[in-house]
Design a protein around this nucleic acid. Sequence first.
RNA 1: GGCGGCGUACCCAAGUGGCAAGGGAGCAGUCUGCAAAACUGCCAUCCAGCGGUUCGAAUCCGCUCGCCGCCUCCA
Length: 477
Amino acid sequence: MPVKVYNTMTGKKEDFTPDAPARVKMYVCGPTVYDLSHIGHARSAVAFDVIQRYLRYSGYEVDFTKNYTDIDDKIINRANKDGVDWKEISERYIKAYDEDMASLGVEVPGRRPRATETIGKIIELIGTLIGKGSAYVMDGDVYYSVRKFSGYGKLSGRNIEELESGARVEVDERKADPLDFALWKKSKPNEPSWESPWGGGRPGWHIECSAMCIALLGETIDIHGGGKDLVFPHHENEIAQSEAATGKPFVRYWLHNGFVNIESEKMSKSIGNILLIRDALKGHTPESVRLFLLSSHYRSPIDYTKDSLKEAEAKAERFYRTLRRMEEEWPDILNKTTDPARLKERLKPVRAAMDDDFNTAGAIGMIFEEVAKANRMMDEAEKGKPGDAFKEKLPAVKAVFKEAGKFLGVFAKTPEEYFDELKSRARLPKEEVERLMEEREEARRKKDFKKADAIRSDLLKQGITLEDTPLGTKWSA
RNA sequence: GGCGGCGUACCCAAGUGGCAAGGGAGCAGUCUGCAAAACUGCCAUCCAGCGGUUCGAAUCCGCUCGCCGCCUCCA
């Protein structure tokens, strides 16, 4: 069964087959590094992380590239505002981005090119475009001639006439046509500048992605991804530049992720409702943030509300509590290895969901069906003698969890790791909690339930929940 | 105005032709000293509305209503 992917270019789900068998060339537009990353960056990164992981899981070798846009007007503005060198800004926020992504379990892409490391290729590409008559020089700037490219608008479903009539007031009068966009921007004094045949300047935003893509992955790549907002004009322009330069199809499958809204509103600096990844992680486990992002299909908009991360966290806890129960109550049975054929069979519903345009929400639903089944089986087994079927099935469930964890990047921790994460944010030190629990245990032994309950409710006020189990009392924050 | 998307229970959310996954919340029960957790049962005869196609539609087509995104930097 081939993986099906929704291709923005055709507006349809298509069977995915890479150009070269078993090898996928994949490029995702990375961040412009001028500020801390927000939950929207996290969504894009997590979505393509899962896509990349799942393709590899499905047997493809994935050449995964994600760039950093480390030179741009916004970076220069930020540097001026902070009174530091632009390089310091880009370095600072590349580091911050990497940290945020690591905390969300996003795997490091195989290649992470920076625009400023690709200047040579960019200049070369612009030169080619000028040579072919697709671009023109105007007083130190270079512009791309949109009208020369007959396919312009094919990705975003626009045509030149519509764009023309809808064009906003054009500030830059030097352009021959309002639709044209900058490939190379002449630098002003005291601005970062690279030498080029057209004088000192810096690359425009769109050209860097074309250059990095072509330089690192080749003239035709399999998958190009990014946020929905990049469809127009960024990706449309990338197609125009790349195809005009190479004469070959640029991208075979275009994938775009949906937005994260905050309380039904678009995140924006002007509304002031930006949710930084760091802030989201303050009150919640990274696992629950990732689970929240994967609980909707990657192309749908998701709405962040004050309860959504709590719900995701409840979900994560349900999973790890079940896994902990399995491991603690049935350690011997769980050690059994599961027959690969059997595992494949059990994994089918999860894979069917993933094969259908990376339907992580559906796959997670299937995982929770397994969770419910596992609990039911264990309840049953506790009542009588665990049968042979149980001894086969329980390890199989765990094996399914393990496999799904590989491509979802959630459900992959040990319960201890997960609950330690939770405990680490408790308001009381671990030792204090354990002392109080011991005190309560003593009271319970003496049947002084009044005292025992008082300790429990005091701890609850501190955000600590106690749970008495046959294997002793457990706590979580 | 142009282009695109969405509308599934109290909330979140899968499902795109064959009798509505999953999670959260809620209610009742089993278990427990009591809780918690877990389990069981209940919780959409119905998928914005109205028509149409079909043996059969939440799923296809048309219209209506509502919401949102892109068209300017943006994940």
